[in-house]
């Protein structure tokens, strides 16, 4: 901030204090205040939204990683991946044969984590995160303009009160000329203030009303992207299901798989390993 800037800031701070104390009358513009408050509501929500959407993507990532972890352990019960062997097979252009369920399950889940999620990320950034980020970047300029208007308003109010004082006090010649200059300054500062005020008053509603066509496509894309993402997940898992005995699905639905677990536990109990 330049020297004059600092001086201005100090002056304005003084004005504000006097205003609070009731020594200077404050100009109010209800219409502007209304628009400003709406803008502020929009700003805070939009910033929060951006954060939350980022969080959402991160949650998806955490979910898939957790799933990979479980699948990996389940798989390693049946042996670890022979990376060297696989690479050799790939070199020879042979297809890898997967012979057990856990292995395929792990591969599929890992695929979800590695490929499907990263496929989502690009479009997600482009149509959801970045537009809202761009929208949020507009707020910087708007906020600056609002601040400027506020400052100019303070200047204008100060001039007004100065003039008021001069008029109230009995005057002589010297002060007559002062009165004239103050009047001039008042007109100038009023003009500046009015310009800024009017600009904001016309443009804020414009921006606010454009938010719907701007953000709605992002919302729709958000839904669509998720649909796509979950469909891909579903499809790739469903592929494994097609390799499974169809009776197994029925067993799962009937809860037979879970009773199988219980049966195992019963068998273990019957083994009575410790012999007590």
């Amino acid at each position: 901030m330049s020297w004059t800037g600092i001086k201005k800031a100090i002056n304005r701070a003084g004005t504000q204090v006097m205003m609070k104390a009731g020594q200077i009358d404050e100009t109010t513009d209800k219409q502007f205040e209304f628009e400003e408050k709406r803008f502020k509501a929009m700003e805070s929500n939009s910033v929060k939204l951006h954060k939350e959407l980022k969080q959402y993507l991160e949650s998806l990532r955490i979910l898939t990683t957790a799933q990979v972890n479980v699948a990996e352990v389940l798989k390693t019960f049946y042996g670890e991946t022979d990376v060297v062997h696989e690479r050799e097979l790939a070199k020879e252009g042979k297809e890898l044969r997967i012979n057990n369920f856990s292995d395929e399950y792990y591969r599929s889940i890992k695929g979800l984590n590695d490929d499907v999620l990263s496929e989502l990320e690009g479009p997600y950034n482009q149509v959801v995160l970045n537009p809202i980020g761009r929208f949020n970047s507009y707020f910087i300029e708007i906020n600056e303009a609002i601040k400027k208007r506020h400052n100019k308003k303070l200047d204008y109010d100060l001039m007004k009160s100065k003039l008021q004082k001069l008029i109230e006090k009995p005057s002589n010649d010297v002060e007559d000329s002062k009165l004239l200059t103050t009047k001039e300054e008042l007109v100038k500062s009023e003009e500046v203030y009015d310009n800024l005020n009017e600009e904001l008053k016309t443009e804020l509603p414009k921006l606010i009303n454009l938010r719907i066509p701007f953000l709605n496509p992002s919302f729709e894309s958000f839904v669509k992207l998720q649909l796509r993402f979950f469909n891909e997940n579903y499809k790739s898992l469903n592929e494994i299901q097609s390799n499974l005995d169809s009776r197994l699905r029925q067993d799962y639905i009937n809860g037979n798989l879970e009773s199988r677990l219980d049966q195992v536990l019963v068998k273990m109990r019957e083994l009575n390993v410790t012999g007590n």
Binding site: L237, Y252, L261, V264
Partner: peptide, 12 residues
Amino acid sequence: EFIDSISKILFF
């Protein structure tokens, strides 16, 4: 069998 069932349940 336990591991097998549990992986399948988890899968489903």
